[in-house]
Design a protein around this nucleic acid. Sequence first.
DNA 1: CGGCCTTTGAAGATT
DNA 2: AATCTTCAAAGGCCG
Length: 376
Amino acid sequence: MPQLSSGGGDDLGANDEMIAFKDEGEQEEKIQENAFTERDLADLKSSLVNESEINQNPSSAVVRRGQHGEQRGFPDKHRQHLDGVSKQQDGGMYKSSAYPGYPFLMLPDPYLPNSSVSPTSNKVSVVQQSHGMHPLSSILPYGNDHFSSSPPHLPTDMSQKSGVHRHQSQDLSGYYPLPPGGVGQISPSMSWFPHSLMLGPSGMHPTGIPHPAIVPPTGKQEHEQYERGMYMKQHVEVKREKEPKKPVIKKPLNAFMLYMKEMRAKVIAECTLKESAAINQILGRRWHALTREEQAKYYELARKERQLHMQLYPTWSARDNYEAGLSGEKSKADWGKKKRRKREKQQDSNTDPGSPKKCRARFGLNQQTDWCGPCR
DNA sequence: CGGCCTTTGAAGATT
DNA sequence: AATCTTCAAAGGCCG
């Protein structure tokens, strides 16, 4: 659980997160400067908990996970300023500045192949966008100024202060195919689902509902092939004929993953890097350099991601994908092997603290300056 | 061609 | 309860 070890007692960042940057004066200053916003964020998180508790359908399976997750994230102690701050946030982040009406605003078809992240477009969809094509991706048309002002074409209901959570299941029903027994019966508008995902078992949720987060459970290569060809009906059909395997529902993206997804293209453009490992290091640093408010936006997005995911797949568990690796050619023995490998690696890394150095060497970065100029 | 690298955070598993 | 492990994304690299 993210917890700040610094004086603020904030719970946003992970312990190691603060440790890692403790020796960075710049970061330290930032933390102090942002003492207030840190508290704000904590309050925000607390408010999110309350929102979830209030808005969740108590009879649905959704409640179980939502409360669990948020409570872990937002301890009670941070609820103190809830009333005041949450109002402010309603009027601020939730209402005007941040993705109002999110996540159920429909924008350009997110499932077009060309809708992927582009450094030049300045419009970056955040969620499961490039290939998973999560529904939320279509609703987050933000780039540099993501979470900026409210689109004028918002449905009245969407732009109202009560905001993002009110009547969510109803809102959802207009855009998302919810499983029977979930949060309600739906007659989804499928127009923005790619045809390939509407075709048959390989793209179908176990409930029979297609969803872009559902991918074939096979290996990475095949997965990528599938993605590349997902708009080619024939290709998909052939695949389905060959191996109609049980689809895998991917995990919802967390805040940092959403941030990465949005910023990756920028970093690639700025730093002319392509290797994800290097890019992710940069993004990790930038993530820490974000203000609490900026991070809060992504936490909020991630929270909605999870909420949506829960509503779409009430019975889904992260454990499903633990086992998904076994569903293909892999055996349980392989799974154990992988587990062991990871464990061994971690032990190795414990005795080898110089991994960042290694990485710099590996990616040809300057060992002295740590990071290339713009890539901080 | 499968797996690694690298990041943070969520969630399940284990101790 | 605390700690550990896995998985989300990404794409180049390596054996």
